[in-house]
Amino acid sequence: MTQILTTKSLDALAPATAKRYEVRDQKVNGLHVRVSTTGAKVFYTMVRPNGSRRRIKIGPYPAVSLADARRRAMEIARDVELGEFEKPSAVSEASAETLGEMIPKFIELHAKPNTKDWKRTESVLHKFDGLKDRPIDQIKRQDVTKVLDDIIANGTPYRANRALSAIKKLMNWCVMRGDIETSPVALLRPPTREVQRDRVLNDDEIRAIWRQAENEDYPFGPFLKLLMMTGQRRAEVSDMRWSELNLDEGIWELPASRVKNARLHIVPLPPQAVNILRSLHRFLDSDFVFTTTGRSAISGFGRLKERLETILPENTPDWRFHDFRRTASTGMAKIGVMPHVIDAVTNHKSGVVSGVGATYNRYTYLNEKREALEQWANELMGIVQKPSATSADAK
């Protein structure tokens, strides 16, 4: 596409739909603007020093104005004509891409094939959406630091650590591919010192959350109950598939591709859990147990947590869904379940069976795990059915 570029026409250029496109300027030979799928616009000029065709990057619009881009394009053309061209900062096709274009590439080509938690990485990288129109080779350490400072200011300091980890992985991947020469965040350290959590819900908190789960409609009500009852990870429960379940035998078989330690995990389901699952309706042609669309598992856990917090006392200490898992482990320990059985229930690598034995003996400690989870389910029901301390005091 060729036209006489104006500031008005530049502002009106729509984002690319499939891949970036170019608009050439009729006024200055060689000058053109590239428009990406994110709407970012970058000026380039095309010249032939020594007969070799070369694309020279001028800079992003509107940081570089149209007048400045034309002036710079003409200077480069003059230098070529006078033989004074000395390889200005020509950049490869890949390095001209913006962060917004590079993130989906990183997720598809690296994160998905190599990490089971790629969805969380993708979500965390959205924290850098303010930089998505910036060419990847123009992102500076200060830009990333500002994003991290904003995350901390919003009261989520640990998320700043996760965001830094994600952007570091992306930048290192870009360096490995040759998209950039060095990572701008290589020297950055996690901004927040993390303290290992030991939060366990007390009986009143368990009762309050369970009763709220009973007030929640499908899918979040039964999801919460199974999360508390099984002691498994949030993503493992929320992404549960019907094909993983054998309700007649009370077995949930988690494939290695869905667990953190990449090891097949058998969860014996107590009768209470089986009853919850039998009571659920099933989406037509969908394998997801907990879904609102039939095409994907549930999400929106932040909003769910906000709803739960409205029924807890104002002075309730900070909690997370992962604390349900620690609560189940602690509860099983209190009622006499042996530590190695608890490790087997929660699929911790610290368990006594590992290596080849764990690979081939898929039902290691099955009976012990079943007994432990049934004991915990009974204990949980006992806690839930007791009146809360505040209710007893009120009487």
Rank of each mutant, 00 (worst) to 15 (best):
Q196T: 05
V352T: 04
I56V: 11
T364R: 15
S354M: 05
T2M: 15
D393M: 13
V289E: 02
P222C: 08
P255W: 15
I139N: 07
G51R: 08
R320A: 07
D217R: 14
T346N: 06
K116R: 15
P270T: 09
I266W: 11
N246A: 05
I342R: 13
D25H: 06
R211A: 07
T346E: 08
A273L: 10
G231Q: 04
Y21I: 04
K369H: 08
S296Y: 05
T292A: 08
N361M: 03
V384C: 11
T17A: 13
L373M: 12
K112M: 14
L373R: 03
K334C: 14
S329A: 15
R295F: 05
R54L: 08
K169C: 06
S257A: 15
E84Y: 04
R24C: 07
A69F: 06
R211G: 05
K369N: 10
A12R: 03
R211V: 00
P270W: 06
N215A: 15
H348A: 12
E214C: 09
K305Q: 04
I167S: 01
T2G: 10
A69D: 12
K57W: 10
L148E: 05
M171A: 10
E75G: 03
E122T: 00
D11R: 14
D239L: 12
V200Y: 05
K132C: 07
